[in-house]
């Protein structure tokens, strides 16, 4: 074998190796994109609102908690729920920066006790309250919570802090038996509708997750749906 040939084979093999590793990377990246199921962009409105003497534009976004029957398996501490609960329609929410965002959550699930009662309190919303089916409250009893919407992010010099914790009240089990959730959260006629508002800061990347132990596992119930990306967790981009 000549030197040229050998060098060519070495370089080609190296490129092939890099291509293989690259292909693995692209595959993983594609899988990751699937988990996000597109983006949910907040609807901006023409109105503005004044909070603490400053003017903010308004935007709204509607989400819900519903069972994903496509990947349905029994889960939870008692195998009665044949579904994975998840936030939807997407778990990548895009919000405008420096905006008064009103979020509506349609929720249907039953629930029980929080691991940490702190997450029964409302934190970070305008006025420190949320509106549950027309009633303003500042906290939900820690043993009557179905899920929480807890929005947080990395503290970093380049993005403003943003922390919102919204406890979602549980639905009585009797109601739930008759209740058939659908993929479109707007059509929920039972369960609860929770509305709250908060202010976004500058651009940044945040995440949200649920603090109610609604997953699998015998320990703390944070396995399965809770521990896997894209069910009770997601990301929020403030753009």
């Amino acid at each position: 074998m000549t030197n040229t040939k050998r060098a060519a084979s070495a370089i080609l093999s190296t490129l092939l190796g890099i291509a293989v590793v690259g292909a693995v990377g692209i595959t993983l990246h594609t899988l990751s994109a699937d988990a996000l199921r597109g983006k949910l962009v907040a609807t901006k409105s023409a109105d503005t609102i004044t909070v603490d003497g400053k003017n903010y534009p308004k935007a709204s976004v509607t989400m819900g908690v519903y069972p994903d029957r496509a990947t349905a398996v029994e889960h939870g501490s008692k195998p009665t729920k044949k579904d994975y609960v998840q936030y939807g329609p997407s778990n990548h929410v895009v919000l405008p920066a420096h905006t008064y965002v009103t979020m509506t959550l349609h929720v249907y699930d039953s629930g029980d006790k929080l691991n940490n009662p702190y997450f029964g309190k409302v934190v970070g919303t305008i006025g420190g309250t949320i509106n549950i089916d027309g009633v303003d409250v500042s906290s939900v009893a820690p043993d009557a919570v179905q899920h929480t919407f807890t929005l947080h992010g990395l503290p970093t010099s380049s993005q403003d802090p943003l922390f919102v914790n919204v406890p979602l009240p549980h639905v009585e089990v009797n109601d739930k038996d008759e209740f058939i959730p659908t993929k479109d959260p707007g059509t929920n006629n039972k369960g609860h509708t929770v509305v709250f508002s908060f202010l976004t800061g500058g651009k940044g990347e945040y995440v949200f997750n649920c603090e109610y132990p609604c997953g699998d596992g015998t320990y703390a119930n944070f396995g399965a749906a809770m521990g896997a990306y894209g069910y009770m967790s997601g990301k929020v981009t403030v753009a």
Binding site: K121, V123, H152, F163, N165, N209, E211
Partner: peptide, 21 residues
């Protein structure tokens, strides 16, 4: 200080304050 999957919470028992900061 209480660690939860994946948020910290802080309680100041002598001051009656709970916070995420």
């Amino acid at each position: 200080v209480t660690g939860n999957q994946w948020v910290w919470s802080f309680n100041y028992p002598s001051l009656g304050v709970e916070s995420n900061m």
